[in-house]
């Protein structure tokens, strides 16, 4: 199944072309690294993929549906750039992770005990349950990254988008992060799209050569090993078995 289809997409800011005739398909269980230098258009392409911008020409489809008509957003988990939020924001880790559940559509949307358990399970799976009551801005880069990952995983997404996940994070924490991503890629039915400027990291964790290149944008692809069957277990249960060290 095709998860993302970028079909001859063109985009320009006013008269300045940024993307020209981009064509690429992300298949189920692919791990795709979208690499480019500053100004190469990777953020623009990410915005086109999630429907924040409309292409001037061409079309983007998510799970086979044209992005403008796509409604199943809970299938997508998103891990933002670490430096994208206000470090003085007063929310606790628990409050941030709970925002991942917003697509629950009932009129009186009190947080149920089951949802709270889901949130605690996601944090426990990522080894940060001890940070539940801490303010998000007080955490280290690695801790924040795991909290955002917990928020993205709380709905068991089919597509996980990672936006510059290693900015401001030390090498050891990066390695732990990729160990975790590799586990999910090998054992679960999740497709990954990672947007980054860090070519070295992509070469280390995805592959040496890009599958497709468009000007300064490069798509690196790692296919899931077909001999690895998907785990029948819940994602959080599976991650708990990894016994991640506390960060």
């Amino acid at each position: 199944m095709n998860i993302i289809e970028i079909d001859h997409v063109h985009y320009a800011y006013e008269d300045k072309p940024v993307l020209s005739d981009i064509q690429f398909t992300v298949e189920e269980r692919d791990f795709v690294g979208l690499v480019g230098t500053n100004g190469a258009g990777k953020t623009t392409l990410l915005k086109l993929i999630v429907g924040l911008l409309k292409p001037w020409n061409g079309e983007v489809r998510l799970f086979g549906e044209q992005v403008g008509k796509f409604r199943e957003w809970d299938k997508i988990g998103y891990v933002p750039q670490k430096n994208q939020f206000n470090p003085l924001f007063p929310a606790t880790v628990e409050e941030i992770v709970m925002t991942g559940l917003f697509s629950n559509k009932t009129i009186h949307r009190r947080v149920t005990r089951e949802q709270q358990q889901k949130c605690h399970d996601a944090l426990e799976a990522l080894g940060v349950q001890n940070l539940l009551r801490n303010r998000i801005g007080q955490l280290s880069g690695g801790q924040q990254q795991r909290v955002f990952l917990a928020r993205a995983l709380i709905n068991n997404p089919a597509l996980l988008i990672l936006d510059e996940p290693t900015v401001g994070i030390d090498t050891q924490t990066q390695n732990e992060f990729f160990h975790l991503i590799r586990h999910m890629h090998e054992h679960h039915n999740i497709t990954f799209l990672m947007v980054t400027h860090d070519l070295q990291m992509v070469r280390t964790h995805i592959g040496e050569q890009p599958a497709v290149s468009h000007d300064a944008l490069h798509f690196y692809v790692k296919k899931a090993d077909p001999t690895h069957a998907c785990s029948q277990h819940d994602l959080t249960h599976s991650l708990k078995t990894m016994r991640l060290p506390h960060v």
Binding site: V50, W73, D74, I76, P80, Q84
Partner: peptide, 9 residues
């Protein structure tokens, strides 16, 4: 995070 909100639909 307004961007995350947009990405979440």
């Amino acid at each position: 995070d307004e961007d995350a909100a947009k990405v979440n639909g």
